[in-house]
């Protein structure tokens, strides 16, 4: 935060401070998430799944909702994190938190290396390069069967208690608490990032990269940074999956995972961080329900939902955001109403 007294930057700082203030619904959401540990002790596994998917979606939101990069290969980082956590646990240290950080670091390095691919070209080029990178990784995993188990997946991952204290139990309670803590930490960090001047500059780049560059905001460096951060978070999500299931399958890198996480963001709405979490909740419940009704064919309904959402309009689907007290959209609506009222008074 810049504490300069100059009027415009002071205004901007006030804006950022307001945006960063904790809202009632955010706190409520986290309380509900924690309460789930006691309310639904028999549903820990699916809750863990939701937390992991939410983490992945939040990381995609950082690059899609804030930097405006359309990625079809976000599963690359997820899968990379999953495999590096698995291999790390198998051959080096079995303690999960170390593995989590290691997976995040590996994925971050990979993200940094590939971030230069999304700097150039149009949406289409980005789609293709991100997609290509994900396919490339999937192919590497497939071909290096001696290391990764190939198509059979990586088994024999042993996970010791977290920090040597909390053992993973059969019902997934520890796993859920662990995933939830990581998710919380990531969301807190992401909140700080997007509500900083840096986050504002990302939004400017999303709106119009050329104009942002002319205002003295260099898009390239900022995109590299956010892409790397998102890769770290996605890698951690993958590591969580490995550690809570003690298994990695090539499915972690599959195309449908990238598509799923896009759908999650579309359901929840991109560009305000919590869209990933809400979307993950809705998506997972929906998928569970659909695969009970029509096992094997739930993909059809997911596809239908995607089409309906696009045809109706993404903005309209996520308009309920404005109802949340204190959200940006709500504030805008209020301001507009106030301006209208003022105009009417003046007339």
């Amino acid at each position: 935060m810049s504490g300069e007294p100059a009027a415009p930057s002071g205004q901007a700082a006030a804006l950022l401070r307001r945006a960063e203030r904790w809202q009632l619904w955010e706190i409520a959401l986290w309380i509900i998430a924690v309460a789930m540990i006691f309310v639904m002790p028999s549903h820990m596994l699916i809750l863990t799944e939701i937390a992991i998917l939410a983490l992945l979606a939040v990381s995609l939101d950082l690059i899609l909702g804030y930097a405006g990069i359309v990625s079809l290969g976000h599963a690359a980082f997820f899968g990379l994190g999953a495999y590096s956590a698995g291999l790390f646990a198998k051959f080096a240290i079995t303690e999960p938190v170390t593995g989590l950080l290691f997976a995040g670091a590996v994925s971050g390095v990979f993200g940094l290396a590939t971030s230069f691919l999304v700097l150039r070209g149009s949406d289409l080029t980005r789609l293709m390069t991100t997609f290509g990178v994900a396919m490339l990784l999937a192919e590497v995993v497939n071909q290096t069967g001696w290391l990764t188990g190939g198509a059979d997946g990586l088994s024999g991952v042993t996970v010791t208690p977290i920090l040597g204290l909390f053992e993973f139990d059969l019902w997934g309670r520890t796993g859920y608490i662990y995933s939830l803590i990581v998710l919380m930490a990531v969301v807190f960090i992401s909140r700080r990032i997007v509500n900083s001047p840096y986050g504002l500059s990302l939004k400017a780049i999303k709106r119009n990269p050329t104009r942002a560059a002319m205002l003295g905001i260099s898009p390239n460096r900022r995109i590299v940074v956010i892409y790397t951060i998102a890769a770290v978070f996605a890698g951690m999500a993958g590591a969580l999956l490995t550690q809570t299931t003690s298994f990695v399958s090539p499915d972690a890198l599959a195309f449908h995972r990238s598509a799923d996480v896009l759908l999650v963001l579309v359901i929840g709405g991109a560009g305000y961080l919590y869209g990933g979490i809400l979307g993950a909740v809705i998506f997972t419940i929906l998928r569970d329900w659909l695969s009970v009704i029509t096992p094997q064919y739930w993909m059809f309904w997911i596809g239908l939902i995607l089409i309906v959402i696009v045809m109706v309009g993404r903005e309209r689907v996520t308009r309920w955001q404005a109802l949340l007290p204190g959200s940006a959209a709500n504030r805008e609506a209020k301001a507009r109403a106030a301006a209208l009222a003022a105009a009417r008074d003046a007339a």
Partner: peptide, 16 residues
């Protein structure tokens, strides 16, 4: 992004 989502949806539906 909308076009991508729409056509992925179509792909999923056709596969199923």
């Amino acid at each position: 992004l909308d076009q991508v989502l729409f056509s992925i949806g179509l792909v999923f539906m056709s596969i199923a």
